[in-house]
Design a protein around this nucleic acid. Structure first.
Lengths: 150, 150
DNA sequence: TTTCCTGCAAAATGTTTGCAAGGCA
DNA sequence: TGCCTTGCAAACATTTTGCAGGAAA
């Protein structure tokens, strides 16, 4: 875990960016928002609504968490990862607006994939007459630690 | 819509393959299964559980539809498309075991994408130590017809 | 002080489970 | 006949909505 800084931004930078984005959008910085952002920033993996509820020790109603995650998504500070089972995980984006992930099925540890082949896909979709495009790409597998446990 | 046969297999071929796969797996060919397979084969787009319920005129309980779709997935005759909102659509696969799609957000019309860049993704995931990989890739947009309606 | 945000309660969705009756092979 | 499937009912899990009180700016 030593070594040069990876491509990941530090916790603090992402928290700062997120808070700024909230107030720049004319929204209020409440205790719930502040704490949810911090929990997301501290986490080593993307979190579900339930994770966030637990890690905030039930201090906020689930409704509040749902509503704020939706707000976060709208202002572009969180990214949603759609799991194979249809559930969502949320991760602070920081600077980059869009990325894809390798997710461990067991522990949900996630790595960002540094390259995005969405361009090629969307170019193809475009050639087929589709417009207003978006795409999802996720890779699922077992991380080294989880594989070792078998 | 005239012209040479596309890469799509005909309805009948996919129905035949599907039925064979069911009985080869030691499962029974019931009225529900037969009809669900036929409805999927006739459909111009992937269907949701609810679509299947309606198109079979409520003849089968939702539970039956859920359970059979799960069976179909297990024996490999349907493929699941995970929408942006987390819902599932189901499509008969026929011969090919795995593909990706361009899905219209409005009418859900879907085109199969003929190429799959999953290999590259999984090679990358593999180099990061992940094993037992799978991936999802979907493109969403507006099809020409739906775009015209705006 | 005004408007946004939160919590509570309830409802709406979507999916799963258990069990007894029915039907395919 | 024997086991697989189905339907019904109920449970479950997740997410959404409405409204009144509370808190940012």
């Amino acid at each position: 875990m030593l070594g040069i800084m990876s491509a990941e931004e530090s916790e603090d930078v992402r928290v700062a960016i997120s808070k700024k984005r909230i107030s720049d959008s004319g929204l209020r910085m409440t205790a719930a928002r502040r704490q949810l952002i911090e929990i997301l920033a501290e986490s080593e993996r993307p979190l579900s609504v339930d994770d966030l509820s637990q890690r905030s020790k039930g201090k906020f109603d689930l409704v509040t968490i749902y509503r704020n995650l939706e707000v976060f998504r709208e202002v572009g500070i969180v990214e949603v990862i759609l799991l194979e089972n249809g559930r969502n995980l949320f991760v602070l984006t920081g600077e980059h607006d869009h990325s894809h992930h390798i997710v461990c099925r067991h522990c949900l540890k996630t790595e960002r994939i540094e390259f995005c082949m969405g361009g090629e896909l969307e170019r193809y979709a475009s050639s087929r007459g589709f417009s207003n495009l978006s795409h999802t790409i996720e890779v699922f597998g077992e991380c080294p630690e989880c594989e070792a446990k078998h």
